[in-house]
Amino acid sequence: MKVSLFVTCLTDIFYPEVGKDTVELLERLGCEVDFPESQTCCGQPAFNSGYHKESIKVAKHMVKTFEGSDYVVTPSGSCAAMLKEYEKLLADDQAWQEKARALGEKTYELTEFLVDVLNEEDVGAAFHAKATYHTSCHMTRLLGVKDAPVKLLSKVEGLDLTSLPHGYDCCGFGGTFSVKMALISEQMADAKVKHIEETDADVLIGADAGCLMNIGGRLRRKGKPVKVMHIAQVLNRKEKR
């Protein structure tokens, strides 16, 4: 199966390891992965801030970038949801809207792709740790991907997964919200940190770089020893005991 990776700008620049693990994981499961090099960012920072004219140009660029792909897979529910938003964003131009719809239909968040398209739940990973999983808002609520990550994680050998209290609450990232409403964002991040600590987990697993950047950054600032990992890093992990 041919898969195009949309790595996302955050992963490309800040978390290259997550991208590497995503590629290796998909290849290990039999996919042929390509990386259309002209890809940039999904445009969400502008779109969510109300700069829709600015995001239209970015959307069109991304539609063109992935025009020849069979599947577009991305390790971010939020960016996947944005790609699916293009159809509405480009509604003023029917030809572009058609193309945007086609992109939306072939776009999958990584765990959704593994479980729903590849039908894989046990990806043969092993990771001995006590962990908890942070559900990302856009992935669960906008994309509707709720069970896939937990299905996959429950099959990871050695992983002791505790559910995160108040898991439904946002971590306070929200893109530009994190800097525009910094004081409120800080309180939301602190509530998340507190709930993570309640689980006694050594590792926080998430599926969206934005959330992980926010929670991880706050954990580090507060000197908490909890390690933050993207789910692709966990699923591509094989360790000897």
Partner: peptide, 21 residues
């Protein structure tokens, strides 16, 4: 405004795309 509240991971020398290529 970001770093007043949280640390920011520093962008590495090698981006994902550099590795991929």
């Amino acid at each position: 405004p970001w770093t007043e509240i949280r640390d920011l991971p520093a962008p590495g020398k090698e981006r994902f795309r550099d590795w991929y290529n």
